[in-house]
Design a protein around this nucleic acid. Structure first.
Lengths: 132, 132
DNA sequence: CAAATTGATACTAATATAATATCATATTAA
DNA sequence: TTAATATGATATTATATTAGTATCAATTTG
């Protein structure tokens, strides 16, 4: 079972290309699609998402495109995952409340929550800046 | 993003019912489906899977059914997840080798592998026996 | 004003998950 | 012995998620 979706993968690849070419600054989707070999329309959607989440600046019109809005040292792997995959939920459908009528007391839920928390903390620690 | 599939959930529910009714021992799929409200055919497939993986004994013919093949103290949450979901893969499609031509040296992969390992170890520690 | 670019959104395709149906085989009890 | 009742195996269908495409509107710039 894959824990990372293609969206997440592509987003990181695109962000790293932007970070590696600081001199150029603004890339159009077409340029990025070409250098990364990510399907143009798909990549467009991804970059628009990153823009909505303030990770990219967008420039409309001729010679427009996207540029990094922040240093990747401040951007965690987890933050990208969250944008494209939402939260990881480990105890989501377990038992559908049959076993644990009282959620607060349920030992299992607590343990799962703890595992989940560690997982998220570690993914938060990984910054994209380290990958350039 | 849900990390547990319905199969896993249902499997655990069924196993717990079997463990809670030690006196009865053998349950048919029909009985289990009724008490757990899990769709009959779906549950059948799940129990057949658990049988294949030696967690259940199967009895064909009239008055047949399934019984626990082992104490749930020996059965981890992870083992059930593995049966129905396969392995969790955290670094599966990350970068499609663009960033890391040398897998062995890649720092990111090592870190992801470590997170993954902790995750699996903790899920292995949780035994279904504790949930009865 | 024309060309190039993103914004928004609707659509299609592929894959994975969930659920159902059915025929074959084995067992048991009347 | 045989009819009823189970599971074994497997094929099929339905639904949801993920992946990818298309398009029109709005904006910018030369």
């Amino acid at each position: 079972m894959k824990l990372l979706k293609r969206h997440t993968d592509y987003a990181i690849i695109a962000l790293l290309v932007l970070a590696k070419n600081k001199s150029k600054k603004i890339f159009s989707v077409a340029e990025l699609a070409k250098t990364t070999k990510i399907p143009y329309q798909f990549l467009r959607g991804i970059l628009q998402h990153l823009h909505k989440h303030k990770l990219l600046k967008a420039y409309k019109g001729k010679n427009g495109g996207f540029s990094l809005a922040t240093s990747l040292d401040n951007v965690s792997l987890l933050s990208i995952i969250r944008i494209f995959q939402g939260e990881f939920k480990l105890n989501e459908c377990l038992f559908r409340k049959m076993v644990c009528p009282n959620i607060n007391r349920c030992v299992l839920r607590k343990r799962l929550k703890k595992i989940e928390s560690y997982f998220l903390e570690e993914l938060e620690k990984i910054k994209l800046g380290e990958l350039i």
